[in-house]
Design a protein around this nucleic acid. Structure first.
Length: 483
RNA sequence: GCCCCCAUCGUCUAGUGGCCUAGGACUCCGCCCUUUCAAGGCGGCAACAGGGAUUCGAAUUCCCUUGGGGGCACCA
C-alpha cells in the first residue's frame, strides 16, 4: 500500500512555523516513499475561521515549495478536502455509531460534568468523564424525539486501554481511565475535531498521521473511533513541539510564529525549509546545509528527534545568509527589487534599477535578510539622510574638515568614473593628507551614505554617479563648516 | 492534582557497549584579512541532570529521583 499522509491545518490563524515543520516532514516522507501528500482544511470551528488564514496557509506552503497531490485548491479523488463541506458524512458516521451502541446521546449537564471533574481531581484521579450519567437508550431516544438536543458522545470501552506504536516514540499506552467519553457530534449537529479528523483520515485512506505532540493524548480517541468505524488505524507519529527561547511552547509573545512573517522579513524559502528540517532531524555526516531534493533521499520519520526544540532565530538568519550568498546576482536582484521598492514606496526607474544591480554584489555578501538590504541600499535613491550618531562620531573630528574638500577635488575632475579610478584618486588623497584609510575614508562614507556603516565606499561612489557624489560632498562640507 | 512524552555544550544536534581525553553547526570570545559593517579564514570557551543496577567496560541497557514539555472542553 502506498504511503498517504496529510497536513490538516485549521484556518483559525496564519500557518504556524510548527505546522510548517510538520508539513515538511510529512511531505519529505511522502516524496521519499513515492507516496501522496494531501492538504486538508480542518475548518470545523466556524467561529474563528477566516478566509485570510485559509489563503495564508496555501500561499505559505507553496512558498516553501511543498506541493500537494490532493487537497484544497486542486481537488482529487476524495474531494472535497474541506471539512465544512462534509458535515453530512460526519453526521452519518455519528448516527451509525449511535445505532450500533458505540456512541450515545449525552444529557449530562455541564454542572454535573464540572462537579464530576472536580471530585475526580480531588480524589487524585484524572478528570475524564466515564459516562456514568448515561441514560438508557430508550429514555435518551424519547427525549430527542421530544425535541431536546444533546451532543453525542463516544462510549469508550471500559475497562480498557489503547496501545499503539508511534513512529517517533515507539510504544505508547493510555489506560481508558484517562480517556473521557468525548463528544463527537455537538448538540447543534456539527462534528468535533476528533470525529471530523478521524473520519477524514479513514475516508482519505491516510496511512500515516504525523502531527504535533500536543495531540498525543488524543490519539487513543482517534484509534477508538477508527476501530468503531471498522477501519484499521493509521500509523501515528508525534513530533515534539517547537519552543520559544524560554522553553515554553512557541507563541506570539516570542516573536513571529507565522511563517509568512519570516517571508516578509526576507527569509528565503530555501533557508526556511533547511532550517525547519534540522529542527528535530539531522542528515548525519555533520552537514548543515541540505537542499530539499537532498533531504528527500535522506529523510526518514524514525530518525526524528523526540525532544522539544527551541526555535533559534540567530541560526535561521545565519543560514539565510548562507543561502543569500549562494544566489546568482541576477536572482538576488530579482528577489530584492520588490523589497527595495516597497521600502521606497515607489517603483525604481531604469537608471535606479541599474544602480541597484551594480551595488547588489556588494550587499549580497553581507546580508542576512533580504529586508535589510532595502535599508542598506536606500542611500542611493533619493536624498542623503545623515544618521546623527554617525555624524557625531566622525564629522566633528578634525580629519573631516581636511578630508572632505580634498576628496571633492580629487574626485570632481576625474576623467574616468570607475571604482578603480575613484579608489586611486582617493588613495592618493590619503597619501597627500597623510591619513590612514580608516580615519580618512569614514568622513567620506558619511558624506556619501549618511552613515558610518555602508556598502564598500568606492563602489558606492561609482554607483551614485559623479554629479550626486560631488553634490553630497559639497553638502557635507557646508554642514561641517557651519558647526 | 492526574495521565502521557522527553533529558548530550546557552541553542539545534552526532553518538545505538569499547573507535569518546564526546564530533559538527549557531551563538559568544580572540587572532587574521580589511575603507566601515559584514562575509571569509584560523583558533578558543562550552555538555553526557543526579543516584543506583547490569557489564571486563557505559553518553549508549534497566530502575529511581530531579528537571522540562504536552494534555486533561459541546477548541483544534
Amino acid at each position: 500500500m502506498s504511503v498517504r499522509v496529510r497536513i490538516a491545518p485549521s484556518p483559525t490563524g496564519y500557518l504556524h512555523v510548527g505546522t510548517a515543520r510538520a508539513a515538511l516532514y510529512n511531505w519529505l516522507f511522502a516524496r521519499g516513499r513515492n507516496g501522496q501528500f494531501i492538504l486538508r482544511s480542518d475548518d470545523t470551528d466556524s467561529e474563528r475561521n477566516a478566509l485570510e488564514y485559509h489563503t495564508d496557509i496555501i500561499e505559505s506552503l507553496r512558498w516553501l515549495g511543498l506541493d500537494w497531490d490532493e487537497g484544497i485548491e486542486i481537488g482529487g479523488p476524495h474531494a472535497p478536502y474541506q471539512q465544512s463541506l462534509r458535515y453530512d458524512r460526519y453526521r452519518d458516521v455519528a448516527m451509525d455509531l449511535l445505532e450500533r451502541g458505540l456512541a450515545y446521546y449525552s444529557f449530562a449537564s455541564s454542572e454535573q460534568l464540572d462537579e464530576f471533574r472536580k471530585e475526580a481531581q480531588a480524589a487524585g484521579k484524572t478528570p475524564a468523564y466515564d459516562g456514568r450519567f448515561k441514560l438508557a437508550p430508550e429514555e435518551a431516544a424519547d427525549r430527542i424525539a421530544a425535541g431536546e438536543s444533546a451532543p453525542i458522545r463516544m462510549a469508550v470501552p471500559r475497562p480498557g486501554a489503547t496501545t499503539f506504536h508511534d513512529v517517533v516514540r515507539d510504544e505508547v499506552t493510555f489506560d481508558h481511565a484517562q480517556v473521557d467519553d468525548f463528544v463527537i457530534l455537538r448538540s447543534d449537529g456539527s462534528p468535533t475535531y476528533h470525529l471530523a479528523s478521524t473520519v477524514d483520515d479513514v475516508d482519505f485512506e491516510i496511512t500515516h498521521v504525523v502531527r504535533g505532540e500536543d495531540i498525543l493524548s488524543s490519539t487513543p480517541k482517534h484509534i477508538v473511533l477508527t476501530k468503531a468505524m471498522g477501519a484499521i488505524p493509521p500509523t501515528y507519529g508525534h513530533l515534539a513541539l517547537l519552543m520559544g527561547p524560554d522553553g515554553k511552547k512557541l507563541s506570539k509573545r516570542h516573536g513571529h510564529t507565522a511563517l509568512s512573517a519570516y517571508r516578509q522579513a526576507g527569509i528565503l524559502p530555501e533557508a526556511m525549509v533547511n532550517y525547519l528540517a534540522l529542527l528535530g532531524w539531522s542528515p548525519g555526516d555533520d552537514e548543515t546545509i541540505v537542499s530539499l531534493a537532498d533531504m528527500i533521499d535522506r529523510f526518514d520519520l524514525d530518525e526524528v528527534t523526540k525532544n522539544p526544540t527551541i526555535f533559534d532565530n540567530d541560526k535561521l538568519e545565519w543560514m539565510n545568509g548562507v543561502y543569500i550568498r549562494k544566489l546568482t546576482v541576477t536572482d538576488f536582484v530579482a528577489r530584492v527589487t520588490p523589497l527595495v521598492e516597497s521600502h521606497l514606496g515607489r517603483q525604481l526607474d531604469g537608471r535606479e534599477a541599474a544602480q541597484l544591480a551594480a551595488i547588489a554584489p556588494q550587499v549580497q555578501e553581507r546580508a542576512k535578510r533580504l529586508a535589510e538590504v532595502a535599508d542598506q541600499v536606500s542611500f542611493i535613491f533619493g536624498d542623503v539622510v545623515y544618521d546623527e550618531t554617525s555624524w557625531e562620531k566622525v564629522m566633528t573630528k578634525d580629519e573631516a574638515a581636511i578630508v572632505l574638500p580634498a576628496a571633492l577635488s580629487a574626485v570632481a575632475t576625474l576623467e574616468e568614473w570607475t571604482t578603480e579610478s575613484i579608489e586611486n584618486a582617493l588613495r592618493n588623497m590619503l597619501t597627500e593628507t597623510e591619513l590612514s584609510a580608516r580615519k580618512g575614508l569614514q568622513p567620506i562614507r558619511v558624506a556619501i551614505s549618511g552613515s558610518t556603516v555602508s556598502p564598500p565606499l568606492f563602489e558606492s561612489i561609482e554607483v551614485l554617479g559623479r554629479d550626486e557624489a560631488v553634490s553630497r560632498l559639497e553638502s557635507a562640507i557646508a554642514r561641517v563648516g557651519s558647526q
